[in-house]
Computed example of a mutant assay.
Amino acid sequence: MNAQGIFIFGAGYSARAFAGLCPKDVAMFGTTRSEENFGLLRKAGISPLLFDGTLTPAIGQTLADATHLVVSVAPGEAGDPVLNAARDLIAGQMPALRWIGYLSTVGVYGDHGGAWVDEETPCRPVSRRSVLRVEAERQWLELGEAIGCPVAVLRLAGIYGPGRNAFVNLRDGTARRLIKPGQVFNRIHVADIAGALAHLAGHGKGGIFNVADDEPAPPQDVVAFAAGLMGVAPPPEVPFEEAELTPMARSFYGENKRVSNAALKAAGYRFRFPDYRAALRALWDDGNWADGESRARMRLP
């Protein structure tokens, strides 16, 4: 990636993985809402800055030199907090800016009854959070067009990786096998989010891209597969109608679709983990499924 400076708004789980793929000699800055996270950012090679929706002088000075901008901050009822605070600066005071990446969600498609969707499928979001995402996507794409800078919108499927996966849930006793006939979800390993970002940034590609695996699958199958690798009994099956779920969890099950990743592949990206089986096997074999710690030191159920 030919970058002199990378700025990340919202240097969370996915953005920190992306930072790990970037050249070590590139200046990299990222924001967080709490100083407690500064250590995590520094460990990832990111110089940390606080951002609570207000553009500080330090952020403004650093943005001015950035060639690549990654945005991983969710919009709220007041709109996109990054655009609210920094739209004018991005539009007029970032002369070196060459590429913008915006992390969104496949939730913008809404429910399609298990049918396949791609980037040309009309968005019909169900949840309020996805409605806000659609609007944020539109505003970022419009800004990019106005300033002549490619904007890549990455619509992410359910994210997992070290520290966030079915093994951790089984270890902690929180894994569940909810049975809702016909229900499937796509997933995406955090390494492929990072890889897709690096690929699109490195080639200066703009547009909308689904970042999802090859195989939408029933969630209970993922839990059972992970339990088999661990050598433990999977949790019992529970009919969806009988499950006690939070409103947010229940809303996820209200959307059923199969997400195509053909556009990202056509853009030249090759997935490291094309399905959940390959990803879970690698996490288990590498022993880094729990925040990189060796499984020999972890207590299994």
Rank of each mutant, 00 (worst) to 15 (best):
F252Y: 15
G202A: 03
Q220M: 03
L143K: 05
A243C: 07
E142C: 02
I188P: 13
Q220D: 11
L229F: 07
Q139S: 03
D172M: 14
L154R: 09
F252E: 13
M230D: 02
G182T: 12
L156P: 07
P239A: 09
E135K: 03
K205G: 04
A175R: 11
L200M: 12
S127F: 13
E255M: 10
L132C: 06
G173C: 15
V238A: 04
H199Q: 08
A249N: 14
F167M: 08
H189F: 12
P235H: 08
G173I: 15
A233G: 09
E215N: 11
D221C: 01
A217G: 04
G161R: 15
G202I: 02
G148F: 15
P235K: 05
R128N: 06
V222L: 00
R129H: 05
F209M: 00
E244T: 12
A201W: 14
A224I: 10
N169F: 09
V238N: 00
V232Y: 11
L245W: 14
A249C: 05
S127Q: 10
K257F: 15
V131G: 02
P218D: 04
A249M: 13
L178D: 02
M248H: 04
I179M: 12
A146K: 11
C149W: 00
G163Y: 05
L197S: 11
A243L: 10
H189S: 09
N256S: 05
E145L: 02
R177M: 03
V184G: 03
V131Y: 01
S251I: 13
E255L: 05
G161P: 11
I193V: 15
L143R: 04
P218V: 08
A191P: 00
I188N: 09
I159K: 15
T174W: 09
Q139D: 06
V153P: 07
